[in-house]
């Protein structure tokens, strides 16, 4: 065989050949869906086509964005994390309780993030080292976090710390008279950092490798253990951070906060085009997924005739569509 001569690739060649579009197709689809829904809203409802509507969408869902980011890591690695809703509740409770006890808000927030990360790490250890199925291990996490929350207080505790409240209400004025809050900035920053980690770091690529084929990743000598524990630690951290954003949003800690929010996070990730079996997907897709969910809610609040439960049904239907399409796609490939 004569060695085929490969001409030095030009930049154009690299642009042309690098990463086939099919990988981005699900994200593109979600983006189109979001644009379509937003456009539909703009045509149907008065005042929908306002940047502020979009900004509110981010504001009202900032905590969910952060949760979805953490969930993306876990799902990409082939796992699932059912505990995030409970960790959010626990986080709001720890924040409220410690501040009520007079802790500095910074110390309080640091504690929340530490607890969340620890809980996540613990679940990761159960999953990887003890070979417990992810959904059972994180089910234990769900019970544990919810139980701890109840143990701290059964009742809602308001957050009155001045610094914290100030942070909650501080708004950032954007050009054109629009405004947003720090929670949105934090959420978007999380997305950017996560996107970088997943796309450009060894840890991130190993997450994809583990999700693609764990046994292979092991035989390739990759650090599977670090990744498998790490993704749950990240998800725990994100859940705690999401809990802080939720506390900023509601200014209270309550044991019944965020019931079922893990489902929203999972739904957002799936609707964002991430394969539930792992290995394929992007954080940006999860962001878009959250925005799609948020848009449904916005629709329903703009449309006086629809009731809130239509949100859940619509999310269920979207989830179904994405899951079935994913299934058909993977079936065709195999």
């Amino acid at each position: 065989m004569s060695a085929t001569t490969v001409p030095n690739p030009t930049t154009w060649d690299r642009v042309r050949t690098y990463s086939p579009a099919s990988r981005y197709l699900p994200v593109v689809a979600t983006f189109a869906l979001f644009i379509g829904m937003f456009g539909f809203g703009g045509i149907s409802y008065q005042g929908f086509f306002d940047w502020q509507v979009f900004l509110s969408l981010l504001l009202d869902n900032s905590f969910l964005i952060v949760l979805a980011v953490g969930m993306t890591f876990v799902i990409l690695s082939g796992g699932i994390d059912l505990s995030v809703g409970s960790v959010v509740a626990l986080s709001t409770m720890i924040a409220a309780k410690t501040m009520e006890m007079g802790w500095s808000p910074y110390l309080s927030m640091a504690t929340v993030l530490l607890v969340g990360t620890l809980l996540g790490t613990l679940m990761g250890v159960l999953v990887h080292y003890l070979d417990i199925e992810p959904f059972i291990a994180t089910l234990a996490g769900l019970f544990l976090a919810r139980g701890l929350t109840y143990l701290i207080s059964k009742n809602s505790i308001p957050i009155t710390d001045e610094t914290f409240v100030e942070l909650a209400f501080a708004s950032i004025t954007l050009p054109g008279g629009y405004y947003t809050t720090w929670t949105v900035v934090i959420a978007l920053a999380t997305v950017v950092v996560a996107a970088y980690v997943l796309a450009r770091t060894r840890f991130g690529r190993t997450v994809y490798a583990v999700g693609g084929n764990e046994a292979s990743a092991m035989l390739m000598g990759l650090r599977v253990a670090v990744v498998k524990v790490g993704v749950y630690a990240i998800s725990g951290f994100c859940a705690a951070l999401g809990g802080l954003l939720f506390a900023l949003y509601t200014l209270s800690g309550y044991s019944l906060h965020a019931v079922g929010m893990e489902l929203d996070a999972i739904a957002a990730v799936v609707i964002g085009g991430t394969l539930l079996t792992g290995g394929r997907g992007f954080v940006v897709g999860s962001l878009l997924g959250v925005l799609v969910l948020g848009t449904i809610q916005t629709f329903i609040s703009f449309d006086g005739t629809l009731n809130s439960w239509w949100t859940r049904i619509a999310i269920g239907v979207l989830l179904l569509v994405f899951v079935v399409v994913q299934r058909l796609m993977t079936r065709r490939q195999s």
Binding site: I80, L276, W309, W310, I313, I315, V323, V324
Partner: peptide, 21 residues
């Protein structure tokens, strides 16, 4: 042929909405 955990997740998400309906 969807994985059970995923297939039943759909109804888990939508079910309470249906109940409220």
């Amino acid at each position: 042929g969807i994985q059970p955990i995923i297939a039943t997740l759909v109804l888990m998400v939508a079910g309470r909405g249906l109940a409220m309906l």
